[in-house]
Amino acid sequence: MAKVLMIHPDKCTGCRNCELACSFEHEGQFRPGASRVQAYTWEREGMSVPMMCQQCDDAACVTVCPTGAMHRSNALANLVDWDAGTCIRCKMCTIACPFGNARYDAASSSIFKCDTCQGAPECVTFCPNGALEFVDDEQHVRSRKKAYAAKFKDAFQEVS
């Protein structure tokens, strides 16, 4: 069963535990600049939004990659993976991604994008708010849709 990372900005508190867990898992140190997920906060509005690779089916980063380094994973469904060995660091993927979710890190000469920790995302483990979930791709919006429908239900109950 294929899984996808689902974000819930309404539950995000802006604590950035996801960034810390990600950089620790991938780099063995705490460097938010090396995290594949970023949680941005707008203080005036009191809102925070986590952002990471959407693992697009029709991924621009894969299309533009001249060496095949950015590729759909054979091992895991719903994963766009990056191969350091074949990558020539042309950075085309970072230009092509409409979300800014593939970044080039000069310090490590790497492309930083979410690899879902190969199917066990640490950001999800460390999120204390339920703002990040790793869920079955068939079900992931069903629960959100039903939750919204429940609001309509409550409203109708009140007027009927």
Partner: peptide, 17 residues
């Protein structure tokens, strides 16, 4: 209350938006 808020690395979220 709109939502709880956390400082950096917080898992408690006592802050109040």
């Amino acid at each position: 209350l709109i939502r709880p808020k956390g400082c950096f690395s917080c898992i408690i979220s006592c802050g109040r938006v």
